[in-house]
Amino acid sequence: MNSLAYQIIFYLFAAIIVGSAALVVISKNIIHSAFGLLFTFFGVAAIYVYLNADFIAVTQIVVYVGGILVLLLFGVMLTNKITQADLKTETLNPVPGLLITLSVLAMLLYTFYFRAKWVTVPVDQQLRGTVVEPIGIATMTTYVLPFEIVSIVLMVALLGAAYIARADRKVQTKEGK
């Protein structure tokens, strides 16, 4: 009963992911695509929960749903001609595209059925409870230096992003004058 409910919810989220991802590609309205991406990110977070990766799931929601998507929507709102934007691509290349898609699908299916080593450990021997605390202990003991380097990387990213965005604005004002 319990595992059946889990399976039903899993397939629900899988359907949400596939459906919204298809909407992102198919929709001609760029705003609809952005909001479709919201549901894709969210469904992927649910899949992470199923993989017992609760920290990654929360990361997915905080960074992708809360951050990247906001940035994406800002990017959409910053573009000048949203309604007039023609989202049709001119070059289609159906035959090479289909070939690449089918070969990738074949590779994935081959790996899925013959090569992948699926976890067959019983449930009670797997990881139990939250993984946030082990991650915290690891960052504070073994990986303290990478932890601090991450902050430097983030600072550099902040400086670079602010600099590039501001340089763009200066060009605009000069053109305005």
Binding site: V62, V63, G75, M77, L78, T139, V150, L158, A161, R169
Partner: peptide, 27 residues
């Protein structure tokens, strides 16, 4: 069209979003 300054603020927000993520297991 929105002002480009909002974009800079969104970028800064994302940086601190990631920072919170690293402080979350620390807490």
């Amino acid at each position: 069209q929105f002002n480009i300054r909002f974009y800079v603020i969104a970028l800064i927000f994302i940086i601190f979003d990631v920072e919170i993520l690293f402080l979350f297991p620390w807490a």
